[in-house]
Every structure is written in C-alpha cells, then in structure tokens.
Amino acid sequence: MRILVIEDDLDAAAFLVKGLNESGHIVDHAADGHDGLHLAENNRYDVMVVDRMLPGIDGLSIVRKLRDSEVDTPALILSALGEVDDRVEGLAAGGDDYLPKPYALAELMARLEALARRARPEQAATQLQVGDLQMDRLKRKVTRAGQDILLQPREFRLLEYLMRHAGQVVTRTMLLENVWDFHFDPQTNVVDVHISRLRSKIDKEFAHPLLHTVRGSGYRLDEHG
C-alpha cells in the first residue's frame, strides 16, 4: 500500500514509517499540515494517517479540506485526546477511523489494512467467500464445503466482519467496535470467547483451519495459514 503519514512528532513518525516499511508498505511522511495537505492533494494514496494536532493546519481541517476537494483517501486520525467526543468529532470531520495515542503498532496496521480494503468497491457483494467457507448475506446463510453452519446473529456479524477483512489482522478492539459497537477495552477476554465459539463452528470439523490467532495482535481469517 502507499501510505501518507502526517505527523509532527519526528520520533513517533520515524518509528511508524519504519514499522510500515517493514510490513512492505511505501510511506511518505509530512511533518506539518501544509506539506501533508499538499502531498495528499497531489498524489494517490491508499490510506493516510493524520495526527490531530499539527503545526500549520490541524489534522481535522486537513481531512475536511480533502473531503471538500473530493479527495476520498481513507484517513485514520491519531490523537492524544482519547475521549468519546473526540472520536465523534474526528469521524464527523470526514475521518474514517480514529485511534487514541498511545497506540499499538499492530492495532494501527490492522486498522489501516481494514480502511484500505473498505475503500475498494467489492463491499456490496452479497456473497463472501474465503476458501471453502461461503456466506450469503441476503439469505443469511453460511456453508463450509457445502455443509450448512448454523450461526447466532452475533456470530454471523462477527464472521461477516472477518470475511470482509479476510487475510488481514483484525484486533479485538476492532471487533468490539465493529461487531458490538462498544468503544472500550474490557479487562476480561470476552471477545476471545466469542471467537473460540465461532471457531468451533467453522473450523472444528474441518482439517484445514481458517480462523487464526495472531499473537499480540488479534485474529485473521485466511485460507492460507
């Protein structure tokens, strides 16, 4: 992916750019709002990371300006303010996701992948498929290798989210946000339990597992281990 990072904290930016590079992404970095806006307007990026507080133009204004000039590159807004409202404000300005600092690099990368994927138009597909696992979103039917799998409504949504982000790492926080609409981190392993239930339904009776645990990050639904 081509990623634009607009971040004025040079240490944090260097760390982020290195991390993203090592994951095979091409990264441009801008250290202030004006440069960032200029780069975003004149290049095509798959996704961008925008710090909220920036010299020159602040992060929210950059996103707003880009949206006004119909640049719809997905934007993840980073902020040192972690309050509920700040999140709402960030999304209202045209941001696509919001992550409070300090963040885990794994969390950030997982979210960037998800954002880039979302920007592609295959969204509306009613049929989702990962390996021999198939989902019909209209009939709300899931089969694996032709066998019907009965899922609870929440399990269905969980699987749907994982299938849409097949091949990507999905963190617990992302699942909690997108499947349950809860924006906090529970102290107990509530999400893991739901994953393990889902796993028992889609993987247990099959030789080849699809739902993988990514240590230290989250989960990944993938045909290839």
């Binding site: 309050e83 509920v84 409202d85 709402v88 349950w180 809860f182 529970p186 393990s196």
Partner: peptide, 27 residues
Amino acid sequence: DRDGRTQFSASALCEDLAELYAAAAED
C-alpha cells in the same frame, strides 16, 4: 460537560453486554 449525551436504548445496550459476557461466563 461534553457533547455526546444522547437518548439511547439502555435495553439494547444491556442486551448487547449480556450477550457479550454470557459467553465468557459460560466459558
């Protein structure tokens, strides 16, 4: 005092939480 106060369904919220935690409890 912040914005962000809304009228929301406490029932739906609790149903969701119950569903989220029931699995962990059962476990």
